[in-house]
Design a binder for these strands. Sequence first.
DNA 1: AATTTATGTCACTATGTGGTGACTTGTCAA
DNA 2: TTGACAAGTCACCACATAGTGACATAAATT
Lengths: 203, 203
Amino acid sequence: MAKTQTRNRGDTEKKIVQAAINLLAEEGFAALGVNKIAAAAGVDKQLIYRYFGGTEGLIEHIAQDLTLWFGSQPVPQKYPDYAEMTGALLEQYTQTLRRDKMLRHLLLWELSDNSDALKTLEKSRSLMFGQWFMQMKGDLEPPADVDAPAINALLLAAMHYLAIRADTLGCFAGIPLETPADWQRVQNAAQSLIQSVYKKERS
Amino acid sequence: MAKTQTRNRGDTEKKIVQAAINLLAEEGFAALGVNKIAAAAGVDKQLIYRYFGGTEGLIEHIAQDLTLWFGSQPVPQKYPDYAEMTGALLEQYTQTLRRDKMLRHLLLWELSDNSDALKTLEKSRSLMFGQWFMQMKGDLEPPADVDAPAINALLLAAMHYLAIRADTLGCFAGIPLETPADWQRVQNAAQSLIQSVYKKERS
DNA sequence: AATTTATGTCACTATGTGGTGACTTGTCAA
DNA sequence: TTGACAAGTCACCACATAGTGACATAAATT
């Protein structure tokens, strides 16, 4: 059989990182302490300090793993105009948001904590999102009389908030956020906003 | 001089509640522990257990104070149509959101915690907001072909997210959220969405 | 004035957290 | 085979948290 070592730094490092990611995905950032991570990894917490320099170092280390995690977005297509492209992007992104509990935990974490580790993590994630957007955008341009970046930010922000909120309250402003039908309604509302603001008049 | 008692349950109860509210306003819900509240109120924590039954009971007790706190919204006016009214409402609410750090802390708390106390707090706040909305709405009606409640929820959700996010990251999706000019841009984008979706065609 | 009630104070337990020094032991090279 | 270094283990510290029992004293009641 293969040479199985009882002591292997690389393996335990992976175990620690994986335990932290799982913990974040399942219980949220509040559970991300040295003790819990060590317990979840089946490892002494001393090793977290030795190999990563504590929780902060560990977070910085898993940042790249996380950004890669979210980098696996669907393939870009060609869209007829800016409105269609924005609509498709928002729809896709919202579905990802609804499926990936870890992403929601991460976004909530960004809202709650302002440590340096989180800032770098947000920065790289934001960068990767920007690249994805540019890829989908292609050479499409929004109408000159609307502030497309601000409008995109508004709609993304709304989806972020509603997705996080669905985990705890399950509704917002009288709009339920539980069933797929509930979310279809939200999606439709967002699409109507996009359509009307970008195609309000085709002179 | 007035009869000043050194021992007065009513006074210390008020001190405790006020300390909790101040703590929430300044440091957020993470600081809302029995120890910190007692220290801030200059009172032994034992009294918190005796009078309120611990932190949870205290939270339920201050819920009404908080809802009253946010109930002091500006006077409603008359607006020509639904779009104008919605726009004014969103603008007013966003300004409140930007000014009141405690409100932001409360909203973040609602996203992070799903205890029963928070649910009741959210419910009463939501109810009060609904009344305020109805008061501003009057007999105005949105166009029949748009899902106005969902659109309102989207825009409010966006503002919630951006307001909370401004406290930590200071920007979102490439849109800065620091200066009044930054926020004016966001407001303009929201207004353009409202205008276009409600007035897309006046056939 | 005496007594009872309730208000306030203190000390303490139990638990969890981040963090560190000292120790044993496996692994690999000389 | 032997020695050295790294990997892993354990015991501890200091601190903060929630929660409780026992006690002193001010205030109200008799």
